[in-house]
Amino acid sequence: MDFAALSFTAFSIFGIFGNVVSILALSRSKRLRNATTAFIINLCAADLLLCMFSMPMSALSFFERRWNYGESLCILFPLLRYSNGAVSLESIIAIAVNRYVLVVYPNLYQKIYTATKVFLMIAAIWVLTLITLLFPLLQLWGMFGYDPRVGTCTILPLNGKSPKTFYYILGFVLPSVIFVFCYSKIYCVVHRASEALRKNSLPMKEMNTVSFSKTTCCFNKRYRHAEESGEKRERKDLRILKVLIVLFLSFVFTFLPVSLVKIFKKEDDFPILNIFGYLGIYLSSIINPVIYIVMSREYRRAYSELFAGEQASNSSISSRRPNTT
């Protein structure tokens, strides 16, 4: 219990700092004003709320081995924890679908992801999440309350029925299916593009050694330009795929333990695994910004601008080749 409480406290401190910095850096960057960034900021906002309220309250309840903060907070605590966790998951799904459309259907991307539609998508994420949690809030299907088995306030059965198992199945299975679908499609597109470039490289080399006419030279220039554009697009799509794979692996690592415990109702049999399950959920709220910093040059530039200032960042960027994720 003490280890869990100390971990929640540390996660809260690092999570608040990381998500606040991420929101400031990404919102201030003019180069990153796109749909993907909007979903990432929404993800960081949900994680920030989790770090500011749910983690400290979890730490206190684990330290004290009981709930000493009244019935109202015992309802608000799981409501915010479940809603913020759901919004975080749905934001990751939205990012995956966004990257899928960009790679697989690039001609439709600008039509689908306009500023208004992105705003409506983000609003829908929050509204649908809150509607789903109205069932235990209004005691229509389960109820919010204190569970002595896990030492915290959560969703309890009402008349022998509870939506908790359904929430965890939906929260793990649905993202997994969407992630696998999007990633496999992106991989197929990237693989086909790579094969096409390799097949076209041989005729290009042969053409350069045979014909030196003006017309052929012009054609070769256009061909080389198209080939370079294709290679650049392939590299960009490959980077997108890598980021999505890392996000998926982190999702599985952080959500699988608690999902197994809750789905199979093993809180009493494996209390340690239940605690580590909560640690995994909270850990997911602080590692998402790290993933984007490590794997995206553009996001690293945004953080650089925030800390070093616009002038210092521009001088360092000018020495690098521009690239996007």
Score class of each variant (00 low, 15 high):
14 F>V: 13
117 K>V: 10
59 A>V: 01
215 T>V: 04
190 V>C: 02
214 K>Q: 13
145 G>H: 03
23 I>G: 00
96 A>S: 11
292 Y>H: 02
85 G>Y: 02
1 M>W: 12
54 S>V: 15
313 S>Y: 06
67 W>G: 01
232 K>P: 07
290 V>A: 09
277 G>N: 02
38 A>L: 09
87 V>G: 06
64 E>C: 01
57 M>T: 06
76 L>Y: 05
186 I>V: 08
313 S>W: 02
209 T>A: 14
143 M>D: 13
253 F>Q: 11
68 N>I: 08
264 F>I: 04
137 L>Q: 05
79 L>I: 13
217 C>S: 15
252 V>T: 08
4 A>T: 14
291 I>W: 04
249 L>R: 07
289 P>H: 10
187 Y>R: 00
264 F>V: 12
140 L>I: 09
33 R>E: 09
251 F>R: 03
123 A>S: 12
248 F>I: 05
62 F>Q: 03
320 R>W: 02
75 I>T: 04
143 M>W: 04
152 T>N: 02
49 L>A: 05
299 Y>S: 07
206 E>K: 15
322 P>D: 00
134 L>M: 11
210 V>H: 10
131 I>N: 01
11 F>Y: 13
245 I>R: 13
121 M>E: 05
17 F>H: 10
118 V>D: 02
207 M>N: 15
97 V>N: 03
258 V>Q: 10
283 L>N: 05
242 K>R: 10
113 Y>V: 03
142 G>H: 04
295 M>G: 02
239 R>Y: 14
270 F>M: 10
285 S>N: 06
219 F>C: 11
290 V>N: 04
306 L>W: 10
225 H>P: 08
123 A>C: 14
179 F>M: 09
97 V>R: 01
21 V>W: 02
120 L>W: 15
309 G>V: 01
221 K>A: 15
7 S>P: 04
153 C>H: 07
263 I>V: 15
255 F>C: 02
9 T>W: 06
12 S>W: 09
12 S>T: 00
6 L>N: 10
156 L>C: 10
172 F>A: 00
305 E>I: 08
163 P>G: 00
79 L>N: 09
172 F>G: 00
76 L>I: 11
66 R>Q: 14
190 V>A: 09
222 R>A: 13
218 C>N: 14
84 N>L: 09
258 V>K: 07
30 K>Q: 13
178 I>C: 04
117 K>H: 15
18 G>H: 08
258 V>W: 01
6 L>R: 12
208 N>D: 15
283 L>E: 03
272 I>M: 11
319 S>E: 11
242 K>A: 00
296 S>V: 01
102 L>W: 06
187 Y>F: 13
84 N>E: 12
189 V>I: 12
88 S>Y: 06
201 S>E: 14
175 P>R: 08
